[in-house]
Design a protein around this nucleic acid. Structure first.
Length: 364
DNA sequence: ATTCCACAGGAAAAGATGGTCA
DNA sequence: TGACCATCTTTTCCTGTGGAAT
């Protein structure tokens, strides 16, 4: 069962990365033309893109704006920044750095007013600023600031319209955003998208059939990111099993592997406290609240030894669980003192956290 | 049935972080 | 630079709940 590299089905693993963007935009004609009329029309409003996780919002923003640029013979610049966890100045700094006119690097000590100045000098015409994960913008007035620069049109990306309204419309009430929702793909559409991916990532297209691709698309309910991970996982399982073609069983067997990979990425994107708590639950598969807190207190000194973070109190720990649930990493059942915390997938390992192995069966 | 207990989660105060402005 | 403000996180305090003990 030794795995011969020549048997590998995957030719280019990068094709299955989240960040891979050397693709053609498919089935987004309507949204594209809406965006085009916003960006090329007279309106000086901004754009809000929404859609559920994994439908390809960032990719759409990137590819469609570049496409509009080349088809319409317009020439505005596109600058894209992920806003997650960044301050106003950090976002502006990154905007300048990402702009083709700007310096590649601005020292972090530069004052905000100077960064602002650098930004305005870099702009030499219409510029579309894409704010990725704009729903994560918290204590910043970045939107208001950018709105005041006439050359800039903002394309903000968020998950959910209501959430966006709640967080921002009140604060930026007078700044207009045209809303363009991105829907999930139909089975057929996603099947086709996956076929393109396979064509790019696999050595040979004959290893998987059209029906199989559509089955994957159907199973993931039109969520592109999941479909792509399922495709990768199916190929990975097939290669492990020494198959030359991907079988239906490989696809089925790949499902947990794909989900594990997605959950693993989510866990790693979370702050340290979440990961510590996850590690404790994962250690035993399931644990009661009492045992969880006891174990936390036991390992706290070790686990927080050489990290910037400090251990947190019980109430604060409880406040971390909703996020872990939302990311489908843990579940809870029972209520009040009987609550059991349980990992969804024991194969998802907290890579940064090493718990000291003092197996403490509820020592009384 | 009643009381007791432990804890999840709500409310609000306190703290931390980062921005603005004189 | 320091006083002040806005926002988000953590802590403190507390209430409601459901199971166990009486």
């Amino acid at each position: 069962m030794a795995r011969d590299p020549n048997d590998d089905i995957i030719g280019d693993i990068r094709v299955f990365d989240d960040s891979y963007d050397d693709v053609e935009l498919l089935y987004r004609k309507e949204e594209l033309s809406e965006l085009r009329s916003e960006l090329t029309g007279d309106s000086d409003g901004h754009v809000l893109l929404t859609g559920s996780s994994g439908v390809g919002k960032s990719l759409f923003a990137k590819k469609s704006i570049d496409q509009i640029n080349s088809y319409d013979n317009t020439s505005f610049d596109r600058v894209q920044v992920n806003c997650f966890g960044k301050t106003t100045t950090a976002i502006k700094r990154e905007l300048v750095e990402n702009h083709h006119n700007g310096p590649d690097e601005i020292p972090k000590t530069t004052a905000e007013s100077d960064v602002e100045e650098e930004l305005e000098t870099a702009l030499d015409g219409e510029t579309v600023v894409v704010l990725d994960e704009a729903n994560k913008i918290h204590q910043t007035d970045i939107i208001r600031d950018l709105d005041e620069i006439p050359e800039i049109t903002i394309v903000a990306i968020a998950h959910d319209l209501n959430e966006w309204m709640h967080q921002h419309k009140m604060r930026y009430g007078n700044i207009h955003f045209e809303h363009i929702p991105l829907s999930q793909f139909s089975t057929q559409q996603l099947g086709h998208i996956l076929e393109r991916r396979a064509r790019q990532g696999f050595h040979n297209m004959r290893v998987i059939s059209k029906e199989q691709l559509e089955n994957i698309a159907d199973e993931v309910g039109g969520i592109a990111r999941q479909g792509i991970q399922r495709l990768w996982a199916a190929a990975d399982v097939a290669a492990d099993s020494g198959h030359h073609n991907i079988t239906d069983d490989d696809i089925a067997a790949g499902e947990p592997r794909a989900m594990t990979r997605i959950r693993q990425m989510r866990l790693e994107s979370l702050p340290y406290h979440h990961q510590v708590l996850y590690a404790i639950i994962q250690e035993r598969g399931e644990v009661t609240g009492t045992d969880l807190h006891a174990r936390y207190n036991e390992v706290a000194a070790d686990v927080y030894h050489d990290v910037p973070a400090e251990p947190i109190r019980e109430r604060t720990r409880r406040q971390k669980f909703p996020k872990l649930k939302q990311y489908d990493l843990i579940t809870t059942r029972g209520s009040t003192q009987g609550t059991i915390y349980e990992v969804v997938d024991a194969d998802v390992e907290p890579e940064k956290i090493e718990l000291p192995d003092t197996p403490s069966p509820k020592s009384v």
